[in-house]
Simulated assay, not measured.
Amino acid sequence: MTIEAQSTELTHFDQSGQAHMVDVAGKQDTHRTAVASGSIRMQAATLTIVTQGNAKKGDVLGIARIAAIMAAKRTSDLIPLCHPLPLTRVSVDFNIVAEKAMIICTAQVETIGKTGVEMEALSAVQIGLLTIYDMCKAVDRGMVMSDIRVLEKHGGKSGDWTSMIDAAPAQT
């Protein structure tokens, strides 16, 4: 995978500084994917409720998965300058990290189109985590969502990009 250079231009502003939707009419349709992730930390007892399926509102992770998929599909309704995209695939996974009382949400989104799906993947992750919070807040209002970010993207003129954050040496 290649690491692309970041552009220094903001694309959602015209020459006079007014916000606008980027014109993608001249771009080629290509297969595009993006993977995003984020986490939610909670009390150990809250995680037990989630994993044992004892939440009063129902299957926390099942409902959060559906909410995340719906969010990816509705991203252009939520973020003003995003293009509506015909998504070809949305996959949402939850990884339980019991020793940290944490759930990691990872979303992979795909399309064949003129613009990328990073925002759709980020929307899926954030709404998945918010749904977990909503379903568990009656027992744990101190949950913390963090580390929401794009892990990788593929396709389009700019090619492939992979986050290097985890590749950096740990600070001591």
Score class of each variant (00 low, 15 high):
M1E: 02
M1Y: 04
M1W: 01
M1C: 01
M1T: 04
T2Q: 00
I3A: 04
E4W: 00
A5M: 13
Q6Y: 05
Q6H: 11
T8I: 13
E9L: 10
E9V: 10
L10F: 15
T11I: 11
F13P: 05
D14Q: 12
D14W: 05
Q15I: 01
Q15W: 00
G17C: 12
Q18M: 09
H20Q: 11
H20F: 14
M21T: 12
M21A: 06
V22Q: 12
V24N: 06
A25H: 15
A25L: 14
A25V: 14
A25F: 14
A25G: 15
G26K: 13
K27S: 04
Q28P: 11
Q28N: 07
D29P: 00
T30D: 08
R32D: 02
T33A: 05
V35M: 06
V35E: 07
S37L: 12
S37Y: 00
I40C: 09
R41V: 11
R41Q: 15
Q43W: 01
Q43L: 06
A44G: 07
A45L: 11
A45T: 10
T46C: 15
I49H: 03
V50G: 02
V50H: 01
T51F: 09
Q52V: 12
Q52G: 14
G53Q: 08
A55R: 09
K57C: 13
D59I: 09
G62T: 04
A64L: 10
A64G: 05
A64T: 09
I66E: 11
I66N: 10
A67V: 01
I69R: 11
M70F: 10
A71D: 10
A71F: 14
A72V: 08
K73N: 12
R74N: 11
R74K: 13
T75D: 03
T75A: 12
D77Y: 00
L78K: 02
L78N: 05
C82H: 05
C82Y: 02
L85G: 04
L87T: 01
S91G: 10
S91D: 15
S91A: 15
V92M: 06
F94A: 05
N95I: 00
I96A: 02
E99V: 06
A101R: 07
A101T: 07
M102I: 01
I103T: 03
C105V: 06
T106G: 00
Q108L: 14
Q108H: 13
V109Y: 02
V109H: 06
K114G: 02
T115Y: 07
E118M: 02
E120R: 08
L122G: 08
L122R: 09
S123M: 10
S123Q: 08
A124D: 14
A124M: 15
V125K: 11
V125L: 12
L129R: 04
L129M: 04
L129E: 06
L129N: 05
L130D: 07
L130Y: 01
K137H: 10
A138S: 14
A138P: 03
D140T: 08
D140A: 03
D140K: 08
R141F: 00
G142I: 00
V144N: 07
S146W: 00
D147H: 13
E152V: 05
E152C: 10
E152L: 03
H154E: 12
H154F: 08
H154R: 15
H154N: 14
G155S: 03
G155Y: 02
G155M: 00
G155V: 00
G156H: 03
G156Y: 02
G159R: 07
W161C: 02
M164N: 11
D166E: 13
D166A: 13
A167P: 01
A167Q: 15
P169S: 13
